[in-house]
């Protein structure tokens, strides 16, 4: 059934009261939303929370999806909002100074070498080390495809500020990615 049913049909099933339809939507999209949330929040626990919020909000608002964008795109936007909302209330959010201990990334691989895993871990660590406001702007724009004005509305600052955060965030990210990685313990798993 799942392979032949579109997201839109599953959403319609949920609107008619079928939980299995929504569960299938969760299975299809959970990894992508989690990856987005992980990059935005910088730690796996918050990413799980944001992912859960995303799907519950989508369940609640299923009837408002109008089909202008694909279900996946719509859900992605909700994921960005949910992650942003979760970040906004975190202690220290107002400061641009990241707390490296709080932002500890996922653990590095214990053995073997895989270029993909290395890049993933390095990127996770670098993103987690970015000041949260920079990280949020970079992820929203570069991964979430949100335009500057949408990010500005969402975060309540001017477009110029958003452009500046994205530019500075990327440059800082590039510096962090150039630094040699030193696997540290994760405090989040």
């Amino acid at each position: 059934m799942a392979g032949e049913t579109t997201d839109e049909e599953l959403l319609e099933g949920w609107l008619q009261g079928r939980q299995d339809s929504f569960s299938e939507l969760v299975r299809r999209h959970e990894d992508r939303i989690f990856a987005l949330a992980l990059r935005m929040t910088g730690n796996r626990s918050d990413a799980l929370d944001a992912t859960q919020d995303t799907f519950l909000i989508a369940a609640r608002r299923a009837s408002t999806w109008r089909g202008e964008a694909s279900f996946g795109t719509w859900l992605y936007r909700i994921g960005i909002n949910a992650s942003h909302d979760l970040l906004r209330k975190k202690k220290g959010w107002e400061t641009l100074e990241a707390d490296p201990a709080e932002a500890a990334p996922a653990a590095a691989p214990a053995h073997g070498f895989d270029e993909g895993i290395a890049l993933r871990v390095d990127l996770a660590r670098a993103l987690a080390s970015l000041p949260p406001l920079y990280r949020e702007a970079v992820v929203m724009h570069d991964l979430g495809d949100l335009p500057y004005d949408a990010i500005a509305r969402l975060t309540g600052v001017g477009i110029g500020t958003i452009k500046s955060r994205i530019s500075r965030g990327r440059r800082r990210l590039a510096e962090l990615l150039e630094q040699p990685s030193s696997p540290g313990p994760s405090k989040d798993r």
């Binding site: 989690f34 970079v138 990327r170």
Partner: peptide
């Protein structure tokens, strides 16, 4: 430098949940 960061962001593999995280979610 910005370009390098964008390439890393767009090119990195997606982080997956492990089984326990998936079950809890």
């Amino acid at each position: 430098g910005e370009l390098a960061a964008v390439r890393s962001l767009l090119g990195a593999p997606v982080e997956a949940m492990d089984d326990l995280e998936r079950a809890r979610l």
